[in-house]
Design a protein around this nucleic acid. Structure first.
Lengths: 368, 368
DNA sequence: TAGGTTGTGCGAAACGTTTCGACAACCGTA
DNA sequence: TACGGTTGTCGAAACGTTTCGCACAACCTA
């Protein structure tokens, strides 16, 4: 590989002049500059990133930190990564994929001690994330995809759960539903303080209340079987529920099976929507489910971009919220006038005009 | 950050001695060594990777090259990446995520010119992959996940399609099926010389022939709608087909819908299996589909490991094939004795004893 | 014409390693 | 006692950049 020295020789100038000319660091006479650029082009010169980084203390390498394959990643996590990688590339940076093993902090200490990366991009951020605290204390520039409970002035890009919930509620309300039930992520995820689980729950409740729609939650199925059970319990407690939002893909599978077992059909007897699932996943179902697709790629891009901005200089903290995109499938319809009896013989009532005796914050509905 | 010099000062030795002691490059007296190690520990010394790389010409950074989000990645591609990242980490390396833009070769030239990476890991390798040719010519160490038509002595890790097809055929044969139809990936993927599409097609044909089972292929649906159509055409041409292997997830959705439209049930009237889909995807279906899960993580790990081996020294080329894992779902059953008439009124015959008039290489079946 | 101001280019130092030849001290042997 | 061979350590060069002070010429101004 040719070096700055080779270019200097060929252009008959000093090394430092070549550097200046190529980087625009300081003015170089037009003629000289032209000669240098030509020489560089002829030699196919590429600056050595290591040498540059060693000297300038800036490598233009970002690390994407993610917890090693919990139960396996989904499409959304993949999109964070590819989105971030793309944005980094476009801005002249590189992205390092850094799985965390047992001790994330030790991992981080190691990674940042190497002098290899300029900044860190955090994925799967918990409400109380120790990594964020460590990085702040260590003075390492970083940004988050997701956010802690109190992000302070840390840059982050996260899902706008409020807007997402509002869109979802508006969608079912517009169809005429007056009640909505919500099946959150697994209790494990919830207990771990996994942001999306906690925030989605809160915001759906708020959005339903604001829209004057009955709302039920408290279910956290993490598998098909648990989804089936949760659905049965839900219908036992709220027989006139007509719309359901589900966060866990596998739980949705169970719900659909349970619906079929009753002899009900989607969307005729129940409106079902997926929350935080990609269209690709929603299309796997039959009928194709309405989904609130998380902006994975975009969050990845934004996360990388704001980190690079931070590296360049310090503006005010950037904190961006992006809503999910509602993609209507074939699982949304007006509430049923009447429904088949449940298998145990209990009659399923028509949509009752009386307020539903919901656990959480039931409320008289109004048509949207 | 503390440097080698700081450690040297604190241990009262020369810089070069510290380097030697810490790297075991050359013998250092036991006492001195102890002193040095202690000083290093006290200072929390971490070698600067840039400086080391600059000098030694080895950065211990690998790049994972992948074509920018065609139509969006699947879980398997994600697993390649995470598997490779993990293996790299365990072997003291780092993994760079490098999306390709318009011109892969230019991308590669750039990436390798930077002196940043020691080697490259190629994903989504085509039968005639120009990247492989370029890297070979440029003398850049690399390995492939997937493989070209004629890999020569290039390291690669790929799916063992022969074993996978054998397992799939054995599975349906054991259930009593005497015919198998195969819906390949979309014709686009096939035309691009996408390895898995071509190889799976070939190997399924070979496996069926070896097992003495009737075989039909030639269908390449790339969406649910195309899947539906393909299934209808298939059943028109081969009304007594009882087992079906599908490669494209979305096509499977269409098949399932078409099966239901006929009033048929899976697995009673048709055995359906997914090829190259993860269990996570198979579980999205109802009934849960039997699937041949690709060893994504393992291929990623192997790919990274063999590249690192190559970097360390040159042994013989490593070429590894790993079969998919057959995970039986609820979509496999013995062939039906009799089936409902198709919607157009044509009677669906029972499993005929006569050889099926298949397009490809029909053959008298025998019970496995 | 002298002094200051630009404009332009040069050389050397520094970043933190690795590597290698030199060398001091010590040993055993002749 | 002198000498070759070990053993352990040191100092300096090199990797390819960036950065900074300085030199030099040309030009303007008083």
């Amino acid at each position: 590989m040719s070096s700055l020295r080779d270019v200097a020789e060929r252009a008959q100038v000093a090394i430092s002049t070549v550097s200046a000319a190529l980087n625009g660091t300081r003015p170089v006479a037009a003629g000289t500059k032209r000669r240098i650029e030509q020489a560089a082009a002829e030699l196919g010169y590429r600056p050595n990133l290591l040498a540059r980084g060693l000297q300038s203390k800036r490598t233009r390498i970002l690390a994407l930190l993610y917890p090693a394959p919990r139960s396996g990643f989904g499409l959304t996590e993949m999109q964070f990564a590819t989105g971030a990688a793309e944005a980094a590339r476009e801005l002249g940076h590189h992205l390092l994929l850094s799985p965390e093993h047992a001790d994330p902090i030790e991992e981080l200490r190691h990674l940042t001690g190497l002098g290899l990366v300029d900044g860190v991009l955090l994925m799967e951020v918990g409400l109380d994330d120790e990594r964020a605290a460590f990085l702040t204390a260590a003075g390492v520039p970083f940004s988050m995809i997701g956010r802690t409970r109190d992000p302070g002035s840390i840059d982050y890009a996260d899902i706008d759960f409020a807007a997402t919930a509002r869109d979802a509620v508006a969608h079912v309300a517009a169809l005429g539903h007056r009640e909505l039930a919500f099946l959150n992520l697994s209790s494990g995820a919830y207990a771990d303080g996994y942001g999306p689980a906690v925030r989605a729950g809160e915001e759906f409740a708020a959005a339903a209340e604001a829209a004057g729609i009955g709302y039920v939650d408290g279910y956290r199925p993490g598998s098909a079987e648990e989804g089936r059970e949760a659905f049965e319990r839900l219908m036992d407690a709220h027989p006139d529920m007509t719309a359901l939002a589900v966060m866990d893909d596998h739980a949705a599978v169970g719900v659909i099976a349970a619906v079929a077992a009753r002899g009900w059909r989607i969307p005729d007897d129940l409106t079902l929507m997926l929350v935080l699932s990609s269209v690709r996943v929603a299309e796997m179902f039959h009928p194709r489910l309405t989904t609130l697709e998380p902006p994975g790629t975009e969050l990845g891009r934004i996360g990388a971009r704001m980190l690079i901005d931070r590296l360049r200089g310090d503006g005010p903290p950037q904190q961006r919220l992006v809503p999910c995109r509602l993609v209507a499938g074939d699982s949304s319809a007006p509430p049923p006038a009447r429904r088949k009896a449940a298998p145990d013989g209990r009659a399923a009532p028509a949509r009752a005009a009386s307020g539903a005796p919901a656990e959480e914050e039931p409320r008289e509905g109004r048509r949207a």
